[in-house]
Design a protein around this nucleic acid. Structure first.
Length: 808
RNA sequence: GCCCAAGUGGCGGAAUAGGCAGACGCAAGGGACUUAAAAUCCCUCGGCAGAAAUGCCGUGCCGGUUCGAGUCCGGCCUUGGGCACCA
């Protein structure tokens, strides 16, 4: 019999062209249909092109999207470009090409690559963060934040990358070096735009309860926000009456405080300076601490350093005891109050410091350990000792009692703190959204009127930041000098630009209504499409992008722009694809796989199938060319099934149960992101068809539909070749009959003392007593229990019978 | 140091609620077809013993719970990820 060869190149081109021409996957704005909004993280279009990691996420949600359409949903599955950012700018500087041109070329390449994989993306909604029509709204949101007092400028020490010459957020500093270029990061003081994400800290924690995020993501976000409950306690300086406010999560240990520590940057040090006997030492220590980068400060954990403030003492508010005041860089100005009470008996850091400087150590939570030898820190429970009126109380009660007491006396109060810090929003760079503010000597910082948005980037000759760290925009006098929108007087534009996280904090809203020039998206359409039903992305975005975008969304909700508190209803995460040598893929390791090569050699359907079959979706797993070949072989076997196509619109007797089981299994597996086992099920079906030597038209029809979301091109082609009506994309997802997924006869396991001794075929639904009877009558069991005492029989109907016997 | 994953054949992995460990695929070995090779098809494929039937052992390690543990509990080890002087 003549058999057409599986010509994937031709088939894939044919269907991709058809989908593009007919706009098969265009999301409709017909709000009467049930909707489904599937989202994947839009890529940064780098010059390296698509990585095999990108399509892991894209294919997964493409499969979900295609299945949803067959289930009758109006599906939105969009794509866009997170195109501002440093690599493009650095490339532009080096090669003297405008970043706009670099971006356009990279986007074109990425788009071509994505399209070659046959994703069911609605390309009519493509967005690009560098498009002025897009960043007009990024700027608009910033102005709203500014208007509500959530954007503020502050002189503060920032992380400064010595190579990029750019301020970095804490999150962009990894192990003391720049996340992007690996160069050393130092502290530098600069006036920065900040966004008050901390104002939303509690809501960002609380509202996690209402969304379906994988637990890992929730835990990581909670940890990052870092809520802690404690108290602020006032210590008085004995000599001056000044107040030292300390934050502690353990006010119950107040009687164990043997000294206090101020951060070297603490402003009280200046106030006390006239009384300090060892000014030189103190000033020297402050200078030393200031010269260290945040990394160096945290790196030098081995040895505590510090200086005592001679001539001043703090008074413990509970007993008036005089405590020495020290300064040390193990206390951070940016957390709590920048001052602590030290309880060396029960805190490792305080203990190390006390040991080094010979300060007293007083046990206040009984633990039966020698606190002089080691800090006893396992003190979430225990009995208070050496603690005045708290002695004898349980820790839990002591905390309440001491706070009540401090509050009553006006010496302290309950306080919640968060590790989360405000978001440094300024970048001294060219390739980012201009911050649409103007500084006027008379009016201060003034927002541009909305009518002047977008404030576009001016053309510049040179994109390099200035040597003093100003953005290249600062050199553009004609652009910088402007009139104050408020008073009309001379004023200067802000020359900092926004960080890359800005455009990605709201892009999912723009997909909903990408061409609207009146509002960022219409109320009606947002009402319909939000929230996003399923958002898949990398774990690496959990604490940055995901938190930032939730923050912006909540803000937009507060000002009535968006209809939901949370942007994403469901969040899942995929694992990394490693090189064949089990290491992270990178150019330097020489283990990078280029998707284009795989598509060219085996086709997009094989590529997609392999990416989903490679392993557990949420786990890291190595690439294997042998595995790719295996998937190709599978698709080829599917292709050849048409050679054994047999009459019959229904399922054959032999296949009926298997077909119903497969429909159930594949559907369930896709919902649970178990693509590998869904594909395994389909492979088993192919094995069954081959063994039987025939596949009925009805069986093949169901099979092709189940495989279609994974391998859309070849299944559509086979559909057409076999003469089925219409297309799979225009059809329906198959249904199964639960009753037909249950076998009439079930093989149960017969055990003696938990060891399998025999197997027995019984009728499905056989009850406990009948199962037990059948088991005990089976030859093998009879033989082996002969002359032994049956102690107990465990029966799990439909599963097993375990006979527990005594010795002979 | 703290938090979160993971550890199963030669390899990727499966086992959805405590009930047949190793589905599916890859690799390997044997065979059929072929002048030959490739492709394809068939068989074998955790270890030990055995001709076989079969038996014993086996899911990182040590204990525990249970009639029964890859799965639950306690304690470790290793790897990966995140945080880290956060009071």
């Amino acid at each position: 019999m003549f058999e057409m060869k599986y010509d994937f190149t031709k088939i894939e081109k044919k269907w991709q062209d058809k989908w593009a021409k007919e706009e098969t996957f265009r999301a409709s704005d017909d709000t009467s249909k049930p909707k489904y909004y599937a989202l994947v993280e839009f890529p940064y279009p780098s010059g390296h092109g698509l990585h095999v990691g990108h399509p892991r996420s894209y294919t997964a949600l493409d499969i979900v999207s295609r299945k949803r359409r067959l289930e009758g949903y109006n599906v939105l599955y969009p794509m866009g470009w997170d195109a501002f950012g440093l690599p493009t700018e650095n490339y532009a500087i080096k090669n003297k090409i405008h970043p706009k041109k670099v971006t356009a070329a990279n986007v074109a390449n990425f788009k071509k690559q994505l399209q070659s994989l046959g994703f069911s993306i609605d390309w009519s909604r493509e967005v690009n963060t560098t498009d002025p029509a897009y960043y007009k709204w990024t700027q608009w949101i910033f102005l709203k934040l500014f208007e509500k007092g959530l954007a503020y400028k502050q002189e503060m020490p920032i992380n400064w990358c010595t190579s990029c010459r750019v301020g970095l957020a804490n999150e962009e500093v990894v192990d003391g070096v720049c996340e992007r270029c690996g160069s050393q990061v130092v502290q530098k003081s600069k006036s920065q735009w900040m966004l008050k994400i901390t104002a939303y800290a509690q809501r960002l924690i609380d509202d996690l309860d209402d969304v379906d995020f994988i637990e890992k993501v929730k835990i990581q976000q909670r940890n990052w926000i870092g809520r802690s409950e404690g108290a602020e306690v006032k210590f008085k300086v004995g000599e001056t009456g000044d107040e030292i406010l300390v934050y502690t999560t353990r006010p119950d240990t107040l009687f164990g405080a043997t000294y206090t520590v101020l951060s070297p940057e603490h402003p009280l040090i200046d106030t006390l300076m006239p009384l300090i006997g060892n000014k030189d030492e103190v000033l020297a220590y402050r200078a030393l601490a200031a010269g260290k980068s945040e990394f160096e400060r945290s790196e030098l954990t081995k040895e505590k350093t510090g200086a005592a403030l001679a001539g001043v003492t703090a008074l413990n508010p509970v007993n008036g005891e005089k405590l020495p005041i020290w300064i040390s860089d193990y206390v951070m100005m940016t957390y709590g109050t920048g001052a602590i009470m030290a309880v060396p008996a029960h805190d490792t850091r305080d203990w190390e410091f006390a040991k080094k400087f010979g300060l007293p150590i007083v046990e206040v939570v009984a633990g039966g350990r020698d606190v002089q030898a080691e800090a006893y820190t396992d003190v979430t429970a225990g009995v208070m000792v050496n603690s005045g009126f708290l002695s004898g109380l349980q820790v839990k009660d002591a905390i309440r009692a001491i706070i009540d007491d401090l509050e009553a006396k006006g010496l302290g109060s309950r306080k919640v703190n968060y590790k989360l810090r405000d978001w440094v929003f300024s970048r001294q760079r060219y390739w980012g959204e201009p911050i649409p503010l103007v500084h006027c000597d008379r009016c201060g910082w003034v927002a541009l009127p909305e009518s002047e948005l977008p404030l576009t980037l001016p053309e510049v000759e040179n994109y390099e930041p200035t040597d003093n760290g100003e953005s290249p925009l600062a050199k553009m006098d004609a652009w910088v000098n402007t009139a104050c929108p408020a008073c009309g007087g001379a004023a200067k534009r802000e020359t900092d630009t926004m960080p890359q996280w800005a455009g990605s904090s709201w892009y999912f809203l723009r997909y909903i209504d990408p061409h609207n020039d009146k509002v960022l998206a219409s109320d009606e359409l947002m009402q319909y499409w939000l929230p996003i039903d399923w958002y898949n992305g990398g774990m690496e975005h959990t604490t940055l992008h995901l938190l930032y975008s939730r923050f912006w969304h909540k803000f937009l909700y507060d000002i009535g722009v968006v209809p939901t508190k949370e942007p994403y209803q469901k969040r899942t995460s995929h694992g990394m694809i490693l090189g064949e040598n089990n290491e992270k893929m990178s150019k330097s390791r020489g283990n990078v796989v280029n998707p284009d090569d795989i598509v060219q050699q085996f086709g997009a359907d094989t590529f997609r199938t392999y990416e989903m079959f490679i392993g557990a979706f949420d786990q890291a797993t190595p690439w294997s060319m042998q595995g790719v070949k295996g998937c190709y072989k599978f698709l080829e076997r599917v292709w050849n099934l048409k050679g054994i196509l047999a009459a019959g619109e229904g399922y054959s007797a032999e296949m009926e149960s298997l077909m119903h089981k497969a429909v159930k299994k594949v559907g369930d597996d896709i919902e649970r992101l178990k693509f590998n086992t869904a594909i395994a099920t389909l492979m088993s079906l192919v094995n069954d068809f081959s063994r039987l030597g025939r596949v009925t038209r009805g069986e093949f029809k169901t099979f092709l539909t189940l495989l279609n979301p994974i391998a859309p091109h070849m299944t559509e082609e086979l559909w057409a070749v076999c003469g089925y009506a219409g297309t799979i994309a225009g059809g329906k997802w198959p249904v199964y009959d639960e009753a037909k997924t249950v076998d009439d006869q079930i093989e149960i396991v017969l055990q003696i003392n938990g060891r399998i001794r025999d197997k027995l075929l019984v009728a499905a639904g056989l009850d406990k007593d009948a199962t037990q009877k059948a088991a005990l009558e089976s030859g093998k069991i009879k033989e082996l229990t002969e002359g032994r005492q049956i102690v107990k029989v465990i029966v799990v109907p439909g599963k097993l019978v375990n006979v527990v016997v005594g010795g002979k």
